[in-house]
Design a protein around this nucleic acid. Sequence first.
DNA 1: ATTAGTTTGTGAATTACTTCACAAGCAAGA
DNA 2: TCTTGCTTGTGAAGTAATTCACAAACTAAT
Lengths: 208, 208
Amino acid sequence: MKRIAESTVRRLSLYLSFLEGIERQGLKTISSDELARLGGTTSAQVRKDLSLFGSFGKRGLGYAVPELSEKLREILGLGKQWRVCIIGAGKIGAALARYRGFAERGFIVTAVYDSDEEKIGKRWESLTVRSISELEKDAAKQHFDIAVVATPAESTPAVVKQVVRAGIKAILNFAPVQISVPSDVTVRTVNMAMELEGLSFALSNRSE
Amino acid sequence: MKRIAESTVRRLSLYLSFLEGIERQGLKTISSDELARLGGTTSAQVRKDLSLFGSFGKRGLGYAVPELSEKLREILGLGKQWRVCIIGAGKIGAALARYRGFAERGFIVTAVYDSDEEKIGKRWESLTVRSISELEKDAAKQHFDIAVVATPAESTPAVVKQVVRAGIKAILNFAPVQISVPSDVTVRTVNMAMELEGLSFALSNRSE
DNA sequence: ATTAGTTTGTGAATTACTTCACAAGCAAGA
DNA sequence: TCTTGCTTGTGAAGTAATTCACAAACTAAT
Protein backbone atom coordinates (compact mmCIF):
# COMPACT_ATOMS: atom_id res chain seq x y z
CA MET A 1 0.00 0.00 0.00
CA LYS A 2 1.25 3.47 -0.83
CA ARG A 3 2.33 5.87 1.86
CA ILE A 4 -0.56 7.73 3.47
CA ALA A 5 0.02 11.38 4.38
CA GLU A 6 -0.46 12.48 7.95
CA SER A 7 -2.96 15.09 6.79
CA THR A 8 -5.06 12.31 5.28
CA VAL A 9 -5.08 10.36 8.52
CA ARG A 10 -6.15 13.44 10.44
CA ARG A 11 -9.06 13.91 8.06
CA LEU A 12 -10.12 10.28 8.33
CA SER A 13 -10.22 10.73 12.07
CA LEU A 14 -12.37 13.79 11.59
CA TYR A 15 -14.74 12.05 9.19
CA LEU A 16 -15.17 9.27 11.72
CA SER A 17 -16.19 11.69 14.44
CA PHE A 18 -18.79 13.23 12.13
CA LEU A 19 -20.12 9.85 11.11
CA GLU A 20 -20.57 8.85 14.72
CA GLY A 21 -22.65 11.96 15.29
CA ILE A 22 -24.68 11.32 12.17
CA GLU A 23 -25.18 7.70 13.13
CA ARG A 24 -26.67 8.82 16.46
CA GLN A 25 -29.07 11.03 14.51
CA GLY A 26 -30.12 7.91 12.64
CA LEU A 27 -29.24 9.04 9.14
CA LYS A 28 -28.51 6.16 6.81
CA THR A 29 -26.35 7.67 4.09
CA ILE A 30 -24.16 10.69 3.57
CA SER A 31 -22.57 12.20 0.48
CA SER A 32 -18.96 13.26 0.13
CA ASP A 33 -20.29 16.76 -0.25
CA GLU A 34 -21.96 16.81 3.15
CA LEU A 35 -18.93 15.27 4.83
CA ALA A 36 -16.77 17.88 3.17
CA ARG A 37 -18.94 20.70 4.45
CA LEU A 38 -18.72 19.37 7.99
CA GLY A 39 -14.98 19.01 7.76
CA GLY A 40 -14.23 22.26 6.00
CA THR A 41 -12.80 20.58 2.94
CA THR A 42 -13.96 19.65 -0.56
CA SER A 43 -15.96 16.68 -1.74
CA ALA A 44 -13.14 15.66 -4.06
CA GLN A 45 -10.81 15.58 -1.09
CA VAL A 46 -13.15 13.33 0.85
CA ARG A 47 -13.48 10.93 -2.05
CA LYS A 48 -9.73 10.89 -2.69
CA ASP A 49 -9.04 10.18 0.98
CA LEU A 50 -11.45 7.27 1.07
CA SER A 51 -10.45 5.92 -2.32
CA LEU A 52 -6.95 5.30 -0.97
CA PHE A 53 -8.45 2.41 0.97
CA GLY A 54 -11.18 1.12 -1.36
CA SER A 55 -14.54 2.00 -2.86
CA PHE A 56 -17.06 2.36 -0.10
CA GLY A 57 -19.71 4.52 -1.73
CA LYS A 58 -22.63 3.97 -4.09
CA ARG A 59 -22.89 6.30 -7.05
CA GLY A 60 -26.01 8.40 -6.92
CA LEU A 61 -26.48 7.63 -3.22
CA GLY A 62 -23.38 8.39 -1.22
CA TYR A 63 -21.90 6.38 1.63
CA ALA A 64 -23.77 4.11 4.03
CA VAL A 65 -23.08 5.68 7.43
CA PRO A 66 -22.63 2.60 9.63
CA GLU A 67 -20.56 0.75 7.02
CA LEU A 68 -18.27 3.70 6.47
CA SER A 69 -17.83 4.27 10.21
CA GLU A 70 -16.91 0.66 10.65
CA LYS A 71 -14.52 0.79 7.75
CA LEU A 72 -12.82 3.90 9.14
CA ARG A 73 -12.50 2.36 12.57
CA GLU A 74 -10.85 -0.59 10.93
CA ILE A 75 -8.50 1.56 8.87
CA LEU A 76 -7.53 3.59 11.93
CA GLY A 77 -6.91 0.45 13.95
CA LEU A 78 -9.58 1.21 16.52
CA GLY A 79 -11.51 -1.76 17.82
CA LYS A 80 -8.29 -3.22 19.13
CA GLN A 81 -7.32 -2.18 22.63
CA TRP A 82 -4.04 -0.34 22.92
CA ARG A 83 -1.95 -0.50 26.07
CA VAL A 84 -0.65 2.89 27.07
CA CYS A 85 1.87 3.94 29.70
CA ILE A 86 2.21 7.50 30.89
CA ILE A 87 5.65 8.80 31.66
CA GLY A 88 5.76 11.78 33.97
CA ALA A 89 3.34 11.87 36.92
CA GLY A 90 2.98 15.64 36.80
CA LYS A 91 0.03 17.86 36.01
CA ILE A 92 -0.25 17.02 32.36
CA GLY A 93 0.18 13.33 33.05
CA ALA A 94 -2.57 13.50 35.65
CA ALA A 95 -4.95 15.37 33.37
CA LEU A 96 -4.37 12.77 30.69
CA ALA A 97 -4.83 9.83 33.05
CA ARG A 98 -8.17 11.24 34.12
CA TYR A 99 -9.30 11.94 30.57
CA ARG A 100 -12.23 9.65 29.84
CA GLY A 101 -12.05 9.89 26.07
CA PHE A 102 -8.87 7.87 26.33
CA ALA A 103 -10.48 4.63 27.47
CA GLU A 104 -13.58 5.20 25.34
CA ARG A 105 -11.46 4.89 22.25
CA GLY A 106 -9.70 1.76 23.46
CA PHE A 107 -6.58 3.37 24.86
CA ILE A 108 -6.05 1.75 28.26
CA VAL A 109 -3.56 3.33 30.64
CA THR A 110 -1.85 0.46 32.40
CA ALA A 111 1.13 2.09 34.10
CA VAL A 112 2.70 5.39 35.15
CA TYR A 113 6.38 6.13 35.51
CA ASP A 114 8.37 8.98 36.94
CA SER A 115 11.96 9.61 37.90
CA ASP A 116 11.17 11.67 41.01
CA GLU A 117 11.94 9.58 44.13
CA GLU A 118 9.27 11.57 45.95
CA LYS A 119 6.55 10.32 43.67
CA ILE A 120 7.63 6.74 43.14
CA GLY A 121 5.50 4.26 45.05
CA LYS A 122 2.62 6.69 45.57
CA ARG A 123 -0.90 5.81 44.45
CA TRP A 124 -1.93 7.97 41.55
CA GLU A 125 -5.17 7.85 39.60
CA SER A 126 -5.80 4.20 40.56
CA LEU A 127 -2.25 3.24 39.59
CA THR A 128 1.02 3.19 41.48
CA VAL A 129 3.84 5.37 40.20
CA ARG A 130 6.84 3.27 39.23
CA SER A 131 10.44 4.23 38.65
CA ILE A 132 11.35 4.98 35.07
CA SER A 133 14.29 2.64 35.52
CA GLU A 134 11.81 -0.27 35.66
CA LEU A 135 10.28 0.57 32.31
CA GLU A 136 12.39 -1.67 30.14
CA LYS A 137 11.98 -4.67 32.45
CA ASP A 138 8.22 -4.09 32.82
CA ALA A 139 7.76 -3.73 29.08
CA ALA A 140 9.24 -7.16 28.56
CA LYS A 141 6.45 -8.65 30.71
CA GLN A 142 3.42 -6.50 29.96
CA HIS A 143 3.52 -5.17 26.46
CA PHE A 144 3.01 -1.41 25.93
CA ASP A 145 1.86 -0.11 22.56
CA ILE A 146 2.05 3.61 23.21
CA ALA A 147 4.04 5.80 25.59
CA VAL A 148 2.68 9.19 26.53
CA VAL A 149 5.67 11.35 27.39
CA ALA A 150 4.77 14.24 29.69
CA THR A 151 8.11 15.08 31.24
CA PRO A 152 10.04 18.34 31.67
CA ALA A 153 12.15 19.39 28.70
CA GLU A 154 15.50 18.53 30.33
CA SER A 155 14.72 14.91 31.16
CA THR A 156 12.84 14.15 27.95
CA PRO A 157 15.70 12.99 25.71
CA ALA A 158 16.81 10.41 28.30
CA VAL A 159 13.23 9.28 28.84
CA VAL A 160 12.67 8.86 25.12
CA LYS A 161 15.81 6.74 24.86
CA GLN A 162 14.44 4.40 27.50
CA VAL A 163 11.07 4.23 25.79
CA VAL A 164 12.75 3.25 22.55
CA ARG A 165 14.94 0.67 24.29
CA ALA A 166 11.78 -0.78 25.83
CA GLY A 167 10.59 -1.51 22.29
CA ILE A 168 7.62 0.88 22.29
CA LYS A 169 6.80 1.94 18.73
CA ALA A 170 4.49 4.93 19.24
CA ILE A 171 4.96 8.06 21.33
CA LEU A 172 2.60 10.87 22.12
CA ASN A 173 4.90 13.69 23.17
CA PHE A 174 3.76 16.57 25.35
CA ALA A 175 7.24 17.72 26.29
CA PRO A 176 8.16 21.08 24.76
CA VAL A 177 11.09 19.68 22.81
CA GLN A 178 11.80 17.97 19.53
CA ILE A 179 12.47 14.28 20.08
CA SER A 180 14.49 12.01 17.85
CA VAL A 181 13.73 8.33 17.41
CA PRO A 182 14.53 5.52 14.97
CA SER A 183 12.37 5.52 11.87
CA ASP A 184 10.25 2.59 13.02
CA VAL A 185 8.93 4.62 15.95
CA THR A 186 6.05 7.03 15.29
CA VAL A 187 5.85 10.27 17.20
CA ARG A 188 3.07 12.81 17.51
CA THR A 189 3.97 15.96 19.35
CA VAL A 190 1.51 18.26 21.07
CA ASN A 191 3.25 21.50 21.86
CA MET A 192 1.26 24.28 23.45
CA ALA A 193 3.94 26.89 22.97
CA MET A 194 4.02 26.16 19.27
CA GLU A 195 0.26 26.49 18.90
CA LEU A 196 0.20 29.75 20.79
CA GLU A 197 3.03 31.13 18.73
CA GLY A 198 1.14 30.15 15.61
CA LEU A 199 -1.78 32.27 16.79
CA SER A 200 0.55 35.08 17.75
CA PHE A 201 2.01 35.01 14.25
CA ALA A 202 -1.43 35.08 12.68
CA LEU A 203 -2.51 38.02 14.82
CA SER A 204 0.68 39.93 14.08
CA ASN A 205 0.66 39.39 10.34
CA ARG A 206 -2.99 39.91 9.68
CA SER A 207 -3.93 41.24 6.25
CA GLU A 208 -0.53 42.32 5.00
CA MET B 1 4.01 39.68 1.77
CA LYS B 2 3.23 36.26 0.35
CA ARG B 3 1.21 33.71 2.27
CA ILE B 4 3.25 31.78 4.83
CA ALA B 5 2.43 28.10 5.25
CA GLU B 6 1.46 26.80 8.65
CA SER B 7 4.27 24.25 8.45
CA THR B 8 6.73 27.11 8.05
CA VAL B 9 5.42 28.89 11.13
CA ARG B 10 5.70 25.70 13.17
CA ARG B 11 9.32 25.35 12.12
CA LEU B 12 10.11 28.96 12.97
CA SER B 13 8.73 28.31 16.40
CA LEU B 14 10.94 25.26 16.67
CA TYR B 15 14.04 27.13 15.51
CA LEU B 16 13.39 29.76 18.13
CA SER B 17 13.27 27.21 20.91
CA PHE B 18 16.62 25.78 19.74
CA LEU B 19 18.16 29.20 19.51
CA GLU B 20 17.14 29.99 23.05
CA GLY B 21 18.87 26.84 24.25
CA ILE B 22 21.96 27.65 22.24
CA GLU B 23 21.97 31.21 23.49
CA ARG B 24 22.05 29.90 27.06
CA GLN B 25 25.07 27.79 26.14
CA GLY B 26 26.72 31.00 25.02
CA LEU B 27 27.34 30.06 21.40
CA LYS B 28 27.56 33.09 19.12
CA THR B 29 26.68 31.73 15.69
CA ILE B 30 24.92 28.74 14.19
CA SER B 31 24.70 27.41 10.63
CA SER B 32 21.54 26.41 8.83
CA ASP B 33 22.97 22.92 8.82
CA GLU B 34 23.16 22.69 12.60
CA LEU B 35 19.67 24.14 13.02
CA ALA B 36 18.41 21.63 10.50
CA ARG B 37 19.96 18.75 12.40
CA LEU B 38 18.30 19.87 15.62
CA GLY B 39 14.96 20.25 13.92
CA GLY B 40 15.02 17.10 11.85
CA THR B 41 14.92 18.95 8.57
CA THR B 42 17.36 20.07 5.88
CA SER B 43 19.61 23.10 5.74
CA ALA B 44 17.91 24.25 2.54
CA GLN B 45 14.59 24.18 4.34
CA VAL B 46 15.94 26.30 7.17
CA ARG B 47 17.36 28.87 4.77
CA LYS B 48 14.16 28.97 2.70
CA ASP B 49 12.05 29.46 5.81
CA LEU B 50 14.19 32.34 7.01
CA SER B 51 14.58 33.89 3.58
CA LEU B 52 10.83 34.43 3.44
CA PHE B 53 11.37 37.21 5.96
CA GLY B 54 14.75 38.62 5.01
CA SER B 55 18.48 37.82 4.90
CA PHE B 56 19.68 37.30 8.42
CA GLY B 57 22.80 35.21 7.89
CA LYS B 58 26.41 35.88 6.95
CA ARG B 59 27.89 33.72 4.21
CA GLY B 60 30.76 31.63 5.46
CA LEU B 61 29.69 32.16 9.07
CA GLY B 62 26.06 31.31 9.63
CA TYR B 63 23.53 33.18 11.74
CA ALA B 64 24.26 35.30 14.81
CA VAL B 65 22.30 33.56 17.54
CA PRO B 66 20.95 36.52 19.54
CA GLU B 67 20.06 38.50 16.42
CA LEU B 68 18.23 35.60 14.86
CA SER B 69 16.33 34.84 18.09
CA GLU B 70 15.26 38.40 18.28
CA LYS B 71 14.23 38.45 14.65
CA LEU B 72 12.16 35.28 15.10
CA ARG B 73 10.48 36.64 18.19
CA GLU B 74 9.56 39.68 16.18
CA ILE B 75 8.27 37.64 13.24
CA LEU B 76 6.20 35.45 15.56
CA GLY B 77 4.78 38.50 17.31
CA LEU B 78 6.22 37.60 20.70
CA GLY B 79 7.45 40.50 22.76
CA LYS B 80 3.97 41.94 22.77
CA GLN B 81 1.70 40.72 25.53
CA TRP B 82 -1.39 38.90 24.42
CA ARG B 83 -4.56 38.92 26.48
CA VAL B 84 -6.11 35.49 26.75
CA CYS B 85 -9.44 34.35 28.11
CA ILE B 86 -10.18 30.74 28.93
CA ILE B 87 -13.64 29.44 28.21
CA GLY B 88 -14.59 26.35 30.16
CA ALA B 89 -13.53 26.11 33.80
CA GLY B 90 -13.11 22.35 33.69
CA LYS B 91 -10.08 20.12 34.01
CA ILE B 92 -8.38 21.13 30.81
CA GLY B 93 -9.08 24.80 31.43
CA ALA B 94 -7.58 24.49 34.91
CA ALA B 95 -4.48 22.70 33.65
CA LEU B 96 -3.99 25.44 31.07
CA ALA B 97 -4.52 28.26 33.54
CA ARG B 98 -1.85 26.76 35.78
CA TYR B 99 0.57 26.22 32.92
CA ARG B 100 3.56 28.49 33.52
CA GLY B 101 4.84 28.45 29.94
CA PHE B 102 1.79 30.49 29.04
CA ALA B 103 2.79 33.65 30.90
CA GLU B 104 6.48 33.16 30.14
CA ARG B 105 5.74 33.66 26.47
CA GLY B 106 3.63 36.72 27.05
CA PHE B 107 0.21 35.09 27.03
CA ILE B 108 -1.63 36.53 30.01
CA VAL B 109 -4.83 34.88 31.16
CA THR B 110 -7.13 37.67 32.22
CA ALA B 111 -10.53 36.00 32.55
CA VAL B 112 -12.35 32.67 32.74
CA TYR B 113 -15.86 31.92 31.57
CA ASP B 114 -18.21 29.00 31.98
CA SER B 115 -21.89 28.36 31.42
CA ASP B 116 -22.35 26.15 34.48
CA GLU B 117 -24.30 28.10 37.14
CA GLU B 118 -22.53 26.00 39.78
CA LYS B 119 -19.15 27.35 38.80
CA ILE B 120 -19.98 30.96 38.05
CA GLY B 121 -18.81 33.33 40.76
CA LYS B 122 -16.34 30.85 42.26
CA ARG B 123 -12.67 31.75 42.65
CA TRP B 124 -10.59 29.72 40.30
CA GLU B 125 -6.84 29.91 39.78
CA SER B 126 -6.67 33.49 41.09
CA LEU B 127 -9.56 34.55 38.85
CA THR B 128 -13.31 34.53 39.30
CA VAL B 129 -15.39 32.45 36.92
CA ARG B 130 -17.78 34.60 34.94
CA SER B 131 -20.83 33.70 32.94
CA ILE B 132 -20.25 33.13 29.24
CA SER B 133 -23.16 35.46 28.62
CA GLU B 134 -20.97 38.33 29.86
CA LEU B 135 -18.23 37.64 27.34
CA GLU B 136 -19.34 40.01 24.62
CA LYS B 137 -19.91 42.87 27.02
CA ASP B 138 -16.60 42.26 28.83
CA ALA B 139 -14.69 42.06 25.57
CA ALA B 140 -15.88 45.54 24.66
CA LYS B 141 -14.17 46.90 27.81
CA GLN B 142 -11.09 44.75 28.22
CA HIS B 143 -9.78 43.61 24.90
CA PHE B 144 -9.07 39.86 24.45
CA ASP B 145 -6.66 38.71 21.74
CA ILE B 146 -7.05 34.97 22.10
CA ALA B 147 -9.79 32.69 23.40
CA VAL B 148 -8.86 29.26 24.65
CA VAL B 149 -11.91 27.06 24.16
CA ALA B 150 -11.97 24.07 26.50
CA THR B 151 -15.63 23.17 26.56
CA PRO B 152 -17.55 19.91 26.05
CA ALA B 153 -18.30 19.00 22.43
CA GLU B 154 -22.03 19.83 22.65
CA SER B 155 -21.69 23.39 23.88
CA THR B 156 -18.71 24.29 21.71
CA PRO B 157 -20.47 25.57 18.57
CA ALA B 158 -22.53 28.04 20.63
CA VAL B 159 -19.47 29.13 22.59
CA VAL B 160 -17.50 29.72 19.42
CA LYS B 161 -20.31 31.85 18.04
CA GLN B 162 -20.12 34.08 21.10
CA VAL B 163 -16.35 34.28 20.88
CA VAL B 164 -16.63 35.43 17.28
CA ARG B 165 -19.33 37.93 18.14
CA ALA B 166 -17.08 39.31 20.86
CA GLY B 167 -14.59 40.19 18.12
CA ILE B 168 -11.83 37.78 19.18
CA LYS B 169 -9.65 36.88 16.19
CA ALA B 170 -7.69 33.86 17.43
CA ILE B 171 -8.93 30.65 19.02
CA LEU B 172 -7.03 27.77 20.56
CA ASN B 173 -9.53 24.95 20.48
CA PHE B 174 -9.30 21.94 22.81
CA ALA B 175 -12.85 20.77 22.25
CA PRO B 176 -13.05 17.49 20.35
CA VAL B 177 -14.98 19.00 17.46
CA GLN B 178 -14.35 20.89 14.25
CA ILE B 179 -15.24 24.54 14.65
CA SER B 180 -16.25 26.91 11.90
CA VAL B 181 -15.43 30.60 11.96
CA PRO B 182 -15.24 33.52 9.52
CA SER B 183 -12.02 33.65 7.52
CA ASP B 184 -10.57 36.51 9.54
CA VAL B 185 -10.48 34.34 12.67
CA THR B 186 -7.54 31.96 13.09
CA VAL B 187 -8.08 28.63 14.79
CA ARG B 188 -5.60 26.05 16.05
CA THR B 189 -7.13 22.84 17.26
CA VAL B 190 -5.51 20.45 19.70
CA ASN B 191 -7.41 17.20 19.59
CA MET B 192 -6.16 14.32 21.69
CA ALA B 193 -8.43 11.75 20.07
CA MET B 194 -7.05 12.67 16.68
CA GLU B 195 -3.46 12.31 17.81
CA LEU B 196 -4.11 8.96 19.41
CA GLU B 197 -5.91 7.72 16.32
CA GLY B 198 -2.94 8.80 14.26
CA LEU B 199 -0.72 6.61 16.39
CA SER B 200 -3.21 3.79 16.22
CA PHE B 201 -3.18 4.04 12.44
CA ALA B 202 0.60 3.99 12.35
CA LEU B 203 0.77 0.93 14.61
CA SER B 204 -1.85 -0.88 12.55
CA ASN B 205 -0.36 -0.16 9.16
CA ARG B 206 3.25 -0.70 9.98
CA SER B 207 5.51 -1.89 7.15
CA GLU B 208 2.92 -2.87 4.62
C1' DA C 1 -38.03 0.77 -20.31
C1' DT C 2 -36.62 5.12 -20.59
C1' DT C 3 -35.25 9.31 -18.70
C1' DA C 4 -33.75 12.79 -15.37
C1' DG C 5 -31.17 13.65 -11.51
C1' DT C 6 -27.48 12.33 -8.23
C1' DT C 7 -23.07 11.13 -6.68
C1' DT C 8 -18.98 8.24 -6.91
C1' DG C 9 -14.14 7.16 -8.32
C1' DT C 10 -10.26 8.71 -10.64
C1' DG C 11 -6.92 10.34 -14.27
C1' DA C 12 -5.27 15.00 -15.43
C1' DA C 13 -4.24 19.63 -14.10
C1' DT C 14 -2.99 22.61 -10.72
C1' DT C 15 -1.09 24.39 -6.70
C1' DA C 16 1.87 24.03 -2.70
C1' DC C 17 5.93 22.50 -0.51
C1' DT C 18 10.63 20.70 -0.39
C1' DT C 19 15.09 19.71 -2.12
C1' DC C 20 18.89 20.55 -5.34
C1' DA C 21 22.70 22.87 -6.76
C1' DC C 22 25.52 26.66 -7.35
C1' DA C 23 27.05 31.60 -7.73
C1' DA C 24 28.26 35.00 -4.51
C1' DG C 25 30.00 36.62 -0.15
C1' DC C 26 32.75 36.44 3.87
C1' DA C 27 36.69 34.93 7.19
C1' DA C 28 41.12 33.64 8.06
C1' DG C 29 45.59 32.32 7.04
C1' DA C 30 49.67 32.66 4.02
C1' DT D 1 46.59 40.66 -1.48
C1' DC D 2 45.47 36.17 -2.84
C1' DT D 3 43.72 31.79 -1.91
C1' DT D 4 41.17 28.23 0.50
C1' DG D 5 37.26 26.77 2.86
C1' DC D 6 32.68 27.59 4.43
C1' DT D 7 27.98 28.94 4.30
C1' DT D 8 24.25 31.77 2.67
C1' DG D 9 20.38 32.98 -0.49
C1' DT D 10 17.75 31.60 -4.26
C1' DG D 11 16.23 30.23 -8.99
C1' DA D 12 15.21 25.75 -10.94
C1' DA D 13 13.82 21.08 -10.44
C1' DG D 14 11.43 17.71 -8.20
C1' DT D 15 7.67 15.81 -5.03
C1' DA D 16 3.58 15.87 -2.77
C1' DA D 17 -1.10 17.30 -1.95
C1' DT D 18 -5.28 19.25 -3.61
C1' DT D 19 -8.71 20.40 -6.92
C1' DC D 20 -10.90 19.84 -11.41
C1' DA D 21 -13.82 17.63 -14.35
C1' DC D 22 -16.22 13.94 -16.27
C1' DA D 23 -17.50 9.09 -17.52
C1' DA D 24 -19.77 5.50 -15.13
C1' DA D 25 -23.18 3.78 -11.99
C1' DC D 26 -26.99 3.98 -9.38
C1' DT D 27 -32.10 5.58 -7.86
C1' DA D 28 -36.52 6.96 -8.60
C1' DA D 29 -40.10 8.61 -11.23
C1' DT D 30 -42.86 8.17 -15.33
